[in-house]
Amino acid sequence: MANILVLNSGSSSLKFALFGVKAACTEKPVVSQAQALSPQLRGQFSGLGTERCAVFIEGMAQAHTPPPAEAHDHQAAMISLLTWLEQQSLLDNLVAVGHRVVHGGTHFKQSTDLDERTVKLLEALTSLAPLHQPYSLAPIKVLQARLPAMRQIACFDTAFHTHQPLEARQFALPYAMYDRGFQRYGFHGLSYDFISRCLPSVIPDFEPESKVLVAHLGNGASLCAIQAGQSVASTMGFTALEGLPMGTRSGAIDAGLVLHLIAQEGMTADDVSTLLYKESGLLGLSGISSDMRTLLRSDKSRAEQAVAHYCYRITREIGSLSAALGGVDHLVFTAGIGEHAAPVRERVVAQCSWLGMRLDPSANQANQTCISAPDSNVGVWVIPTDEEAVIAADCLALL
Protein backbone atom coordinates (compact mmCIF):
# COMPACT_ATOMS: atom_id res chain seq x y z
CA MET A 1 0.00 0.00 0.00
CA ALA A 2 1.31 3.46 -0.91
CA ASN A 3 1.52 5.94 1.97
CA ILE A 4 1.17 9.70 2.37
CA LEU A 5 2.88 11.39 5.33
CA VAL A 6 1.22 14.55 6.65
CA LEU A 7 3.08 17.13 8.77
CA ASN A 8 1.42 19.91 10.76
CA SER A 9 4.09 22.04 12.40
CA GLY A 10 3.35 24.51 15.19
CA SER A 11 5.57 26.86 17.15
CA SER A 12 6.52 24.17 19.70
CA SER A 13 5.04 21.02 18.20
CA LEU A 14 5.21 18.77 15.17
CA LYS A 15 2.10 16.70 14.48
CA PHE A 16 2.38 13.87 11.99
CA ALA A 17 0.01 11.35 10.44
CA LEU A 18 0.44 8.51 7.99
CA PHE A 19 -2.34 7.61 5.56
CA GLY A 20 -2.43 4.54 3.35
CA VAL A 21 -3.79 5.01 -0.17
CA LYS A 22 -6.43 2.32 -0.74
CA ALA A 23 -7.80 3.54 -4.07
CA ALA A 24 -7.31 6.20 -6.73
CA CYS A 25 -9.28 9.38 -6.14
CA THR A 26 -9.77 12.26 -8.55
CA GLU A 27 -11.83 14.50 -6.28
CA LYS A 28 -11.26 16.20 -2.95
CA PRO A 29 -14.19 15.52 -0.55
CA VAL A 30 -12.99 14.41 2.86
CA VAL A 31 -16.28 12.62 3.48
CA SER A 32 -15.33 10.07 0.80
CA GLN A 33 -11.76 9.65 2.02
CA ALA A 34 -12.72 6.48 3.94
CA GLN A 35 -12.87 4.77 0.56
CA ALA A 36 -9.56 6.20 -0.65
CA LEU A 37 -7.40 6.81 2.43
CA SER A 38 -6.71 4.59 5.42
CA PRO A 39 -5.29 6.29 8.56
CA GLN A 40 -2.29 4.27 9.71
CA LEU A 41 -0.96 6.26 12.66
CA ARG A 42 -0.90 9.69 14.24
CA GLY A 43 1.57 11.28 16.59
CA GLN A 44 3.09 14.45 17.88
CA PHE A 45 6.29 15.97 19.21
CA SER A 46 5.27 18.50 21.85
CA GLY A 47 7.28 20.94 23.93
CA LEU A 48 10.01 21.28 21.32
CA GLY A 49 12.93 23.29 22.61
CA THR A 50 11.90 22.79 26.25
CA GLU A 51 12.63 20.30 29.00
CA ARG A 52 9.05 19.06 28.58
CA CYS A 53 9.62 17.68 25.08
CA ALA A 54 7.54 14.53 24.63
CA VAL A 55 6.46 12.23 21.81
CA PHE A 56 3.36 10.08 21.50
CA ILE A 57 2.03 7.81 18.76
CA GLU A 58 -1.43 6.34 18.41
CA GLY A 59 -3.27 4.17 15.92
CA MET A 60 -0.59 1.60 15.10
CA ALA A 61 -1.73 -2.01 14.90
CA GLN A 62 1.07 -3.05 17.23
CA ALA A 63 2.98 -1.26 19.95
CA HIS A 64 6.19 0.42 18.89
CA THR A 65 8.69 2.48 20.80
CA PRO A 66 8.18 6.10 19.69
CA PRO A 67 11.00 8.29 18.42
CA PRO A 68 13.31 9.66 21.12
CA ALA A 69 12.03 12.78 22.88
CA GLU A 70 15.29 14.72 22.93
CA ALA A 71 14.44 16.90 19.92
CA HIS A 72 15.48 20.46 20.65
CA ASP A 73 13.89 22.04 17.57
CA HIS A 74 11.76 21.21 14.52
CA GLN A 75 14.70 20.11 12.38
CA ALA A 76 15.82 17.64 15.04
CA ALA A 77 12.25 16.38 15.47
CA MET A 78 11.93 15.82 11.73
CA ILE A 79 15.22 13.91 11.55
CA SER A 80 14.16 11.80 14.52
CA LEU A 81 10.81 11.07 12.87
CA LEU A 82 12.40 10.06 9.56
CA THR A 83 14.83 7.76 11.34
CA TRP A 84 11.99 6.15 13.26
CA LEU A 85 9.82 5.73 10.15
CA GLU A 86 12.75 4.07 8.39
CA GLN A 87 13.28 1.71 11.33
CA GLN A 88 9.61 0.72 11.14
CA SER A 89 9.89 0.19 7.34
CA LEU A 90 7.28 2.90 6.84
CA LEU A 91 9.34 4.95 4.37
CA ASP A 92 9.45 2.17 1.80
CA ASN A 93 6.08 2.94 0.23
CA LEU A 94 5.99 6.67 0.90
CA VAL A 95 4.81 8.50 -2.25
CA ALA A 96 4.34 12.07 -0.93
CA VAL A 97 4.62 14.31 2.12
CA GLY A 98 1.93 16.93 2.67
CA HIS A 99 2.58 20.03 4.80
CA ARG A 100 0.32 22.50 6.51
CA VAL A 101 1.64 25.94 5.57
CA VAL A 102 -0.09 28.83 7.29
CA HIS A 103 0.47 31.64 4.76
CA GLY A 104 0.27 31.30 1.01
CA GLY A 105 0.13 35.02 0.23
CA THR A 106 -1.17 36.01 -3.19
CA HIS A 107 0.83 33.32 -4.99
CA PHE A 108 -0.85 30.16 -3.74
CA LYS A 109 -4.61 29.72 -3.93
CA GLN A 110 -4.62 25.94 -3.82
CA SER A 111 -2.40 23.08 -2.69
CA THR A 112 0.80 22.94 -4.72
CA ASP A 113 4.00 20.98 -5.23
CA LEU A 114 7.07 22.32 -3.48
CA ASP A 115 10.40 23.10 -5.11
CA GLU A 116 13.21 25.58 -4.49
CA ARG A 117 11.26 28.45 -6.09
CA THR A 118 8.07 27.90 -4.09
CA VAL A 119 10.01 27.51 -0.85
CA LYS A 120 11.70 30.88 -1.43
CA LEU A 121 8.31 32.49 -2.07
CA LEU A 122 7.02 31.05 1.19
CA GLU A 123 10.10 32.21 3.10
CA ALA A 124 9.34 35.76 1.98
CA LEU A 125 6.01 35.56 3.85
CA THR A 126 7.62 34.83 7.22
CA SER A 127 7.05 38.36 8.56
CA LEU A 128 3.29 37.91 8.02
CA ALA A 129 3.15 34.73 10.12
CA PRO A 130 6.20 34.80 12.40
CA LEU A 131 4.75 32.25 14.85
CA HIS A 132 4.03 29.72 12.12
CA GLN A 133 5.83 30.10 8.79
CA PRO A 134 9.39 29.28 9.93
CA TYR A 135 8.17 26.13 11.64
CA SER A 136 6.22 25.03 8.56
CA LEU A 137 9.33 25.44 6.43
CA ALA A 138 11.74 23.63 8.77
CA PRO A 139 10.49 20.06 8.00
CA ILE A 140 10.32 20.90 4.28
CA LYS A 141 14.00 21.79 4.24
CA VAL A 142 14.99 18.67 6.18
CA LEU A 143 13.15 16.51 3.66
CA GLN A 144 14.74 18.34 0.73
CA ALA A 145 18.14 17.45 2.18
CA ARG A 146 17.40 13.90 3.36
CA LEU A 147 14.96 12.72 0.66
CA PRO A 148 15.50 15.06 -2.30
CA ALA A 149 13.44 12.92 -4.69
CA MET A 150 10.41 12.82 -2.39
CA ARG A 151 7.36 14.67 -3.65
CA GLN A 152 6.38 17.40 -1.19
CA ILE A 153 3.06 19.24 -1.30
CA ALA A 154 2.07 22.41 0.56
CA CYS A 155 -1.52 22.90 1.70
CA PHE A 156 -2.37 26.43 2.78
CA ASP A 157 -4.46 27.86 5.61
CA THR A 158 -5.14 30.90 3.45
CA ALA A 159 -6.35 29.05 0.34
CA PHE A 160 -9.90 28.41 1.58
CA HIS A 161 -10.54 32.15 1.82
CA THR A 162 -9.26 33.24 -1.59
CA HIS A 163 -12.73 33.38 -3.16
CA GLN A 164 -14.20 35.82 -0.66
CA PRO A 165 -15.80 38.86 -2.32
CA LEU A 166 -13.46 41.77 -2.93
CA GLU A 167 -15.13 43.97 -0.32
CA ALA A 168 -14.43 41.31 2.31
CA ARG A 169 -10.74 41.11 1.38
CA GLN A 170 -9.97 44.81 1.11
CA PHE A 171 -8.64 47.24 3.67
CA ALA A 172 -9.67 50.86 3.20
CA LEU A 173 -6.17 51.75 2.02
CA PRO A 174 -5.09 53.14 -1.37
CA TYR A 175 -6.14 50.52 -3.91
CA ALA A 176 -2.62 50.10 -5.27
CA MET A 177 -1.67 48.60 -1.91
CA TYR A 178 -4.25 45.82 -2.39
CA ASP A 179 -2.55 44.91 -5.65
CA ARG A 180 0.74 44.69 -3.77
CA GLY A 181 -0.75 42.11 -1.40
CA PHE A 182 -1.95 44.28 1.49
CA GLN A 183 -5.27 42.52 1.95
CA ARG A 184 -7.21 40.21 4.23
CA TYR A 185 -6.12 36.60 3.79
CA GLY A 186 -7.89 34.78 6.60
CA PHE A 187 -6.42 31.66 8.24
CA HIS A 188 -7.39 28.29 9.75
CA GLY A 189 -8.57 27.48 6.24
CA LEU A 190 -7.66 23.78 6.41
CA SER A 191 -9.84 23.40 9.50
CA TYR A 192 -12.72 25.29 7.89
CA ASP A 193 -12.32 23.26 4.72
CA PHE A 194 -12.63 20.03 6.70
CA ILE A 195 -15.75 21.21 8.56
CA SER A 196 -17.33 22.48 5.34
CA ARG A 197 -16.81 19.16 3.59
CA CYS A 198 -18.18 17.25 6.61
CA LEU A 199 -21.39 19.22 7.11
CA PRO A 200 -23.60 17.21 4.71
CA SER A 201 -22.70 13.95 6.45
CA VAL A 202 -23.01 15.32 10.01
CA ILE A 203 -26.08 17.58 9.92
CA PRO A 204 -29.32 15.81 8.99
CA ASP A 205 -31.04 17.21 5.89
CA PHE A 206 -28.27 19.76 5.47
CA GLU A 207 -29.03 22.26 2.71
CA PRO A 208 -26.02 23.24 0.57
CA GLU A 209 -27.02 26.91 0.68
CA SER A 210 -27.21 26.95 4.49
CA LYS A 211 -25.54 29.88 6.23
CA VAL A 212 -22.94 28.46 8.59
CA LEU A 213 -20.66 30.06 11.15
CA VAL A 214 -17.68 28.00 12.28
CA ALA A 215 -15.82 28.90 15.47
CA HIS A 216 -12.28 27.48 15.42
CA LEU A 217 -11.34 28.05 19.04
CA GLY A 218 -7.91 26.87 20.13
CA ASN A 219 -4.66 28.52 21.14
CA GLY A 220 -5.24 30.37 17.87
CA ALA A 221 -8.86 31.38 17.37
CA SER A 222 -11.03 32.70 14.57
CA LEU A 223 -14.50 32.57 13.08
CA CYS A 224 -15.52 31.98 9.48
CA ALA A 225 -18.79 32.53 7.63
CA ILE A 226 -19.43 29.80 5.04
CA GLN A 227 -22.14 29.34 2.44
CA ALA A 228 -22.25 26.76 -0.37
CA GLY A 229 -18.83 25.50 0.71
CA GLN A 230 -17.25 28.93 0.21
CA SER A 231 -15.70 31.30 2.74
CA VAL A 232 -17.72 34.52 2.76
CA ALA A 233 -15.85 36.37 5.53
CA SER A 234 -13.47 35.60 8.38
CA THR A 235 -12.17 37.35 11.47
CA MET A 236 -8.44 37.04 10.68
CA GLY A 237 -6.92 39.39 8.15
CA PHE A 238 -3.46 40.30 6.84
CA THR A 239 -1.85 38.21 9.56
CA ALA A 240 -3.02 35.58 12.04
CA LEU A 241 -3.05 38.30 14.71
CA GLU A 242 -6.38 39.95 13.88
CA GLY A 243 -9.82 39.07 15.15
CA LEU A 244 -10.51 37.17 18.37
CA PRO A 245 -8.23 37.25 21.41
CA MET A 246 -6.23 34.02 21.51
CA GLY A 247 -3.92 32.19 23.89
CA THR A 248 -1.15 34.79 23.75
CA ARG A 249 -2.22 36.95 20.78
CA SER A 250 -4.19 40.15 21.25
CA GLY A 251 -6.61 39.81 18.36
CA ALA A 252 -8.04 43.00 16.83
CA ILE A 253 -6.51 46.18 18.20
CA ASP A 254 -6.66 49.84 17.23
CA ALA A 255 -3.82 50.59 14.81
CA GLY A 256 -3.53 53.98 16.52
CA LEU A 257 -2.58 52.21 19.75
CA VAL A 258 0.32 50.53 17.98
CA LEU A 259 1.48 53.92 16.66
CA HIS A 260 1.19 55.36 20.17
CA LEU A 261 3.27 52.57 21.69
CA ILE A 262 6.04 53.25 19.18
CA ALA A 263 5.89 57.05 19.07
CA GLN A 264 5.05 57.85 22.71
CA GLU A 265 6.10 54.82 24.76
CA GLY A 266 9.40 54.28 22.97
CA MET A 267 8.70 50.69 22.03
CA THR A 268 10.39 49.22 18.98
CA ALA A 269 8.61 47.22 16.31
CA ASP A 270 10.10 44.06 17.86
CA ASP A 271 8.82 45.11 21.29
CA VAL A 272 5.30 45.59 19.94
CA SER A 273 5.47 42.29 18.06
CA THR A 274 6.44 40.46 21.25
CA LEU A 275 3.64 42.22 23.16
CA LEU A 276 0.91 41.44 20.64
CA TYR A 277 1.95 37.92 19.66
CA LYS A 278 3.33 36.47 22.90
CA GLU A 279 2.22 38.50 25.93
CA SER A 280 -1.42 39.33 25.23
CA GLY A 281 -4.66 37.39 24.72
CA LEU A 282 -5.82 35.13 27.55
CA LEU A 283 -2.35 35.19 29.08
CA GLY A 284 -2.16 38.97 29.16
CA LEU A 285 -5.73 39.48 30.35
CA SER A 286 -5.52 36.93 33.14
CA GLY A 287 -1.90 37.22 34.16
CA ILE A 288 -2.23 33.52 34.92
CA SER A 289 -2.21 31.32 31.84
CA SER A 290 -2.91 31.12 28.12
CA ASP A 291 -4.66 27.77 28.67
CA MET A 292 -8.46 27.96 28.82
CA ARG A 293 -8.59 24.82 30.99
CA THR A 294 -6.48 26.52 33.66
CA LEU A 295 -8.61 29.67 33.55
CA LEU A 296 -11.89 27.77 33.86
CA ARG A 297 -10.55 25.96 36.94
CA SER A 298 -9.26 29.16 38.55
CA ASP A 299 -11.19 31.15 41.17
CA LYS A 300 -9.21 34.32 40.43
CA SER A 301 -11.21 37.32 39.27
CA ARG A 302 -8.80 38.06 36.43
CA ALA A 303 -9.23 34.53 35.10
CA GLU A 304 -12.99 35.01 35.08
CA GLN A 305 -12.64 38.39 33.36
CA ALA A 306 -10.37 36.91 30.68
CA VAL A 307 -12.95 34.21 29.91
CA ALA A 308 -15.74 36.79 29.90
CA HIS A 309 -13.85 39.03 27.46
CA TYR A 310 -13.05 36.05 25.22
CA CYS A 311 -16.71 35.02 24.99
CA TYR A 312 -17.83 38.63 24.52
CA ARG A 313 -15.50 39.05 21.54
CA ILE A 314 -16.71 35.78 20.00
CA THR A 315 -20.31 36.97 20.36
CA ARG A 316 -19.55 40.33 18.74
CA GLU A 317 -17.86 38.66 15.80
CA ILE A 318 -20.78 36.25 15.41
CA GLY A 319 -22.99 39.31 15.03
CA SER A 320 -20.66 40.76 12.41
CA LEU A 321 -20.40 37.54 10.39
CA SER A 322 -24.15 36.92 10.64
CA ALA A 323 -24.60 40.29 8.95
CA ALA A 324 -22.10 39.29 6.24
CA LEU A 325 -24.10 36.10 5.61
CA GLY A 326 -27.50 37.76 5.89
CA GLY A 327 -28.49 35.37 8.70
CA VAL A 328 -27.26 32.16 10.23
CA ASP A 329 -28.63 28.62 10.11
CA HIS A 330 -25.90 26.74 11.96
CA LEU A 331 -23.08 27.49 14.41
CA VAL A 332 -20.25 24.93 14.63
CA PHE A 333 -17.68 24.81 17.43
CA THR A 334 -14.36 23.12 16.67
CA ALA A 335 -10.68 22.90 17.76
CA GLY A 336 -9.44 22.42 21.33
CA ILE A 337 -11.57 24.97 23.20
CA GLY A 338 -14.51 24.66 20.83
CA GLU A 339 -14.61 20.88 21.15
CA HIS A 340 -14.01 20.56 24.89
CA ALA A 341 -14.83 23.78 26.79
CA ALA A 342 -18.57 23.44 27.52
CA PRO A 343 -18.66 26.61 29.70
CA VAL A 344 -17.35 28.70 26.77
CA ARG A 345 -19.97 27.27 24.41
CA GLU A 346 -22.67 27.89 27.03
CA ARG A 347 -21.73 31.55 27.42
CA VAL A 348 -21.50 32.18 23.70
CA VAL A 349 -24.86 30.58 22.89
CA ALA A 350 -26.55 32.40 25.78
CA GLN A 351 -25.21 35.72 24.49
CA CYS A 352 -26.54 34.85 21.01
CA SER A 353 -30.10 34.28 22.19
CA TRP A 354 -31.13 37.28 20.09
CA LEU A 355 -30.45 35.08 17.06
CA GLY A 356 -32.87 32.49 18.38
CA MET A 357 -30.07 30.19 19.60
CA ARG A 358 -30.97 27.82 22.41
CA LEU A 359 -28.67 25.31 24.08
CA ASP A 360 -29.40 21.82 25.33
CA PRO A 361 -27.40 21.95 28.61
CA SER A 362 -27.02 18.19 29.05
CA ALA A 363 -25.91 17.67 25.44
CA ASN A 364 -23.44 20.53 25.82
CA GLN A 365 -21.93 19.10 29.01
CA ALA A 366 -21.56 15.72 27.29
CA ASN A 367 -19.80 17.32 24.27
CA GLN A 368 -22.38 15.73 21.97
CA THR A 369 -22.42 16.54 18.27
CA CYS A 370 -25.72 18.43 18.35
CA ILE A 371 -25.97 20.70 21.39
CA SER A 372 -28.88 22.94 20.37
CA ALA A 373 -32.27 22.66 22.05
CA PRO A 374 -35.23 21.39 19.98
CA ASP A 375 -36.76 24.89 19.90
CA SER A 376 -33.52 26.59 18.75
CA ASN A 377 -33.78 28.55 15.51
CA VAL A 378 -30.10 27.91 14.88
CA GLY A 379 -28.48 24.47 14.88
CA VAL A 380 -25.50 24.38 17.25
CA TRP A 381 -22.92 21.66 16.70
CA VAL A 382 -19.59 20.36 18.01
CA ILE A 383 -17.54 18.81 15.21
CA PRO A 384 -13.90 17.78 15.79
CA THR A 385 -11.64 19.16 13.11
CA ASP A 386 -9.00 17.17 11.24
CA GLU A 387 -6.55 19.31 9.29
CA GLU A 388 -4.36 16.29 8.56
CA ALA A 389 -7.25 14.54 6.77
CA VAL A 390 -7.74 17.56 4.49
CA ILE A 391 -4.02 17.66 3.68
CA ALA A 392 -4.00 13.93 2.88
CA ALA A 393 -7.08 14.28 0.65
CA ASP A 394 -5.57 17.23 -1.22
CA CYS A 395 -2.29 15.37 -1.70
CA LEU A 396 -4.20 12.39 -3.07
CA ALA A 397 -6.09 14.63 -5.47
CA LEU A 398 -2.79 16.01 -6.79
CA LEU A 399 -1.24 12.57 -7.02
Rank of each mutant, 00 (worst) to 15 (best):
Ile57Gly: 13
Ile57Tyr: 15
Ile57Phe: 15
Glu58Gly: 08
Glu58Asn: 09
Glu58Ile: 04
Glu58Trp: 08
Glu58Val: 02
Gly59Ser: 05
Met60Val: 09
Ala61Val: 10
Ala61Ile: 11
Ala61Pro: 10
Gln62Asn: 12
Gln62Leu: 12
Ala63Gln: 14
His64Arg: 15
Thr65Val: 06
Pro66Arg: 09
Pro66Trp: 07
Pro67Cys: 11
Pro67Tyr: 10
Pro68Arg: 05
Pro68Cys: 04
Ala69Val: 00
Ala69Gly: 01
Glu70Val: 07
Glu70Trp: 13
Ala71Ile: 03
Ala71Leu: 04
Ala71Asp: 04
Ala71Arg: 08
His72Gly: 00
His72Asn: 02
His72Ile: 01
Asp73Cys: 02
His74Ile: 06
Gln75Trp: 11
Gln75Phe: 13
Gln75Met: 10
Ala76Tyr: 06
Ala77Trp: 08
Met78Cys: 14
Ile79His: 15
Ile79Val: 15
Ile79Cys: 13
Ile79Thr: 15
Ser80Trp: 03
Ser80Pro: 04
Thr83Gly: 12
Thr83Pro: 04
Thr83Cys: 09
Thr83Ala: 10
Trp84Ser: 00
Trp84Met: 02
Trp84Glu: 00
Gln88Met: 07
Gln88Ile: 05
Gln88Trp: 09
Gln88Tyr: 10
Gln88Phe: 12
Ser89Arg: 09
Ser89Cys: 10
Ser89Pro: 04
Ser89His: 13
Leu91Gln: 08
Leu91Phe: 08
Leu91Cys: 09
Asn93Lys: 14
Asn93Met: 06
Asn93Ala: 12
Leu94Asp: 03
Leu94Lys: 03
Val95Trp: 03
Val95Lys: 05
Val95Tyr: 03
Val95Leu: 05
Ala96Cys: 01
Gly98Ile: 07
Gly98Glu: 02
Gly98Gln: 07
His99Asn: 00
Arg100Val: 02
Arg100Asp: 01
Arg100Ser: 04
Val101Glu: 01
Val102Pro: 05
Val102Gln: 04
His103Ala: 00
His103Ile: 00
Gly104Lys: 08
Gly105His: 00
Gly105Ala: 00
Thr106Val: 10
His107Cys: 14
Phe108His: 08
Phe108Pro: 07
Lys109Thr: 11
Lys109Ser: 13
Gln110Asp: 06
Ser111Glu: 01
Thr112Cys: 03
Thr112Trp: 02
Thr112Val: 05
Thr112Lys: 04
Asp113Ala: 07
Leu114Glu: 02
Asp115Asn: 02
Asp115Ile: 00
Glu116Ser: 13
Arg117Lys: 15
Arg117Glu: 14
Arg117Cys: 15
Arg117Thr: 15
Thr118Tyr: 07
Thr118Asp: 01
Thr118Pro: 06
Val119Gln: 13
Val119Asp: 12
Val119Leu: 14
Lys120Glu: 15
Lys120Leu: 14
Lys120Arg: 15
Leu121Phe: 14
Leu121Trp: 14
Leu122Ser: 08
Leu122Asp: 06
Leu122Tyr: 11
Glu123Lys: 14
Glu123Met: 06
Ala124Asp: 11
Leu125Trp: 11
Thr126His: 11
Thr126Ser: 12
Thr126Pro: 08
